[in-house]
């Protein structure tokens, strides 16, 4: 498999806390991957290491064969688990910023998605609800023809109807030669769209498998397997 994402022996410590320990992971192109694990399992840390927002304590991360840096950031479309735009910006400024910095950004597609949401370009970012802000960010991230989409908790904190909208947006808009990584603990909601799953527990990779293999070998849904694997004592 030509690795689009290659994580080798990555350990990340914050002081005495070990967030990730000896993580090895390879993902190929054209897949939709669920990065699954309970809260505090290291999902966000792993995503941030791939984006380049954190520096590994040990090990290496490569995207398309290149160590994380300016070149890989051109290939990665990242949706953080928080609002990252300055509240004083207008929606059109956010679109302009993406259009300015990313060559693979499809401005027409972004405008179309925002129009479908009923969001006008002149609207101030601060005037939008939390859910709307998340949708604006998702629309911008999914309007890129990226090689790797990293979506950190895209459906966390929104109502079930909004979850459907978000997942539909992801599936309908991602660049099909790219790989989508969805980090979440809401397995049941994303299960239907996933090709592969990566289970993280206490900063270690517990299991990497295709969804079909789990269903065939165990006759259970990913959600059921997840609940068994991560059952609290």
């Amino acid at each position: 498999m030509d690795a689009l994402l290659d994580v080798r022996g990555v350990t990340k410590r914050f002081g005495n806390t070990v967030a990730l320990e000896h993580v090895d992971l390879m993902l190929g192109p054209g897949r939709i991957v669920g990065l699954l694990g309970p809260n505090g399992s290291g999902k966000t840390t792993l995503v941030k290491l791939v984006v380049g927002l954190l520096t590994p304590t040990q090990g290496s991360v490569a995207v398309a064969g290149m160590p994380v840096g300016t070149q890989t950031k051109r290939l990665v479309s990242y949706l953080p688990d928080r609002t990252c735009f300055d509240n004083r910006m207008k929606v059109r400024d956010c679109v302009g910023l993406y259009a300015d910095f990313y060559e693979d950004f499809d401005i027409a597609k972004a405008k179309e998605m925002l129009a479908a949401l009923g969001i006008e370009g002149r609207a101030a970012f601060r005037s939008l609800s939390k859910g709307m802000k998340e949708k604006v960010q998702l629309a911008l991230v999914m309007s890129r023809k990226a090689r790797l989409y990293l979506l950190d908790e895209p459906i966390g904190g929104v109502d079930p109807a909004a979850r459907d909208y978000i997942l539909e947006t992801i599936i309908r808009n991602y660049f099909e030669e790219g790989t989508v990584v969805i980090s979440t603990h809401l397995i049941a909601d994303v299960e239907t769209v996933l090709d592969d799953v990566v289970f993280l527990r206490d900063g270690r990779v517990e299991r990497v498998s295709s969804v079909d293999a789990i269903r065939e070998s165990q006759g259970k849904s990913v959600d059921q397997v997840f609940r068994e694997v991560f059952r609290c004592c």
Binding site: V51, L53, T70, Q71, K73, R74, Y78, P80, C84, D86
Partner: peptide, 17 residues
């Protein structure tokens, strides 16, 4: 200070050194 907080998730994911 804010650029190294939540807004940093935008700025430092841009392809810039």
């Amino acid at each position: 200070y804010r650029a190294l907080g939540d807004e940093g998730y935008l700025w430092f994911s841009l392809p810039a050194t």
